[in-house]
């Protein structure tokens, strides 16, 4: 078996070219406490410093054997760049990601995306993070991501305003989503110009346990498609939550691959999509990779079942929770590499 680097493995997989074995990678957060500690930092400080962000990502991948790094880690960069304050929880002993406690925009009419978003706030240092990772860890592919317009709207405005607005102020909601769609296209291109190797569009706020598939088809899907059409390949679409009723529409959004979480019935999705679509998922993150009471064997069986169900790559269904149970995390990665030696539905083997 030819030995590929993680970057070769993932990049070939995303082009559906034969690979040595199945990668364990993600479009979502992959930073974990052992990596952050090895890099020598505290959790609240890795979101605001490019060096710390890069090294925490690299060490997380190296120690756990992940086939990628993913930056940034938190969902507030864009909201911060439009003028909102973030909470970093610097005095908390718990692992808390940055949040936007209060939003400056109170109504749908207030939304005005500033020019040159990529030069504002922490977004401006992402090229440094990417360059640092490329220099220090050329063997690792760099994944970057953007939230989809609906989910991003929830970071910039009160979520119930958007949700109710879908019915009560549809034209205004659509106008906001269009503004955000333009912003997301620009920022994705900026990340790609900066050297990210693959990009993921994450739109968890539209799963079928929140919004109707009809709303997805009418309001969400055209905008996801517009974004994905504007970005270069490789590009992935991720939706977590209930996606069984959406998976075929997701496949019409022009992504190179689809990623889903534990609520998706992968075997059924594979049947609906056929063999040629890159389908990735759906590790049940907390119980399998964090809970101290989950035996390693259970995590291994979980990964094997995911592969048997017909994924092309094993991917956590969401951000990994940083406080992992190392033994289980390592077992998940190793099982993916060994049990995934056989061809997957869409990708052959060398």
């Amino acid at each position: 078996m030819a030995e590929l680097t993680p970057k070769e493995r993932v990049m070939r997989l995303l082009r559906k070219e034969p690979i040595d074995t199945m990668p364990f990678f993600s479009g979502m957060g992959m930073v974990v406490m052992p990596g952050i500690k090895k890099a020598g930092y505290n959790f609240p400080t890795i979101h605001t410093d490019p060096e710390r962000m890069a090294m925490s990502a690299i060490w997380s991948a190296r120690l756990m054997g992940f086939d990628c790094v993913v930056v940034p880690f938190d969902m507030t960069m864009e909201s911060e760049a439009v003028g909102n304050q973030i909470s970093l929880y610097e005095n908390s002993e718990d692992i808390l990601y940055p949040t936007i406690p209060k939003k400056i925009w109170a109504t749908l009419d207030d939304v005005a995306i500033p020019e040159e978003m990529s030069t504002r706030g922490r977004l401006a240092f992402l090229p440094q993070v990417i360059a640092k990772i490329k220099k220090e860890a050329p063997e690792l592919p760099i994944g970057c991501w953007q939230l989809g317009p609906f989910t991003q709207a929830g970071q910039m405005l009160e979520l119930d305003l958007i949700l109710k607005g879908v019915f009560k102020q549809k034209e205004k909601v659509v106008a906001v989503l269009d503004k955000l769609t333009d912003m997301i296209i620009d920022l994705g291109k900026f990340l790609q110009r900066s050297g990210c190797d693959y990009i993921t569009l994450r739109e968890p706020g539209v799963a079928a346990d929140l919004l109707s598939p009809r709303t997805f088809r009418e309001i969400i899907k055209p905008r996801l498609t517009r974004i994905l059409d504007a970005w270069e390949s490789p590009k992935l679409l991720h939706i977590c939550g209930q996606t069984d009723p959406l998976i075929e529409m997701m496949n019409d959004c022009h992504a190179d691959g689809l990623t889903v979480d534990i609520k998706n019935n992968i075997a059924e999705s594979r049947k609906k999509l056929g063999k040629d679509v890159l389908l990735m998922g759906n590790v049940d993150t907390y119980p399998m990779t964090c809970d101290e009471n989950t035996p390693k064997e259970k995590a291994i069986a979980h990964i094997q079942a995911i592969i048997d169900n017909g994924v092309d790559a094993v991917m956590p269904g969401c951000d990994l929770w940083p406080a992992i149970k190392e033994e289980n995390m390592l077992a998940c990665v190793e099982t993916t590499h060994t049990y995934g030696a056989q061809p997957s539905p869409a990708v052959g083997r060398l």
């Binding site: 949700l163 109710k164 019915f167 346990d209 929140l210 919004l211 709303t215």
Partner: peptide, 14 residues
């Protein structure tokens, strides 16, 4: 029965 979703429920709550 998947006839209503969260936006509808929010409006009913109002």
């Amino acid at each position: 029965r998947n006839e209503y979703f969260v936006p509808e429920v929010l409006m009913c709550a109002d």
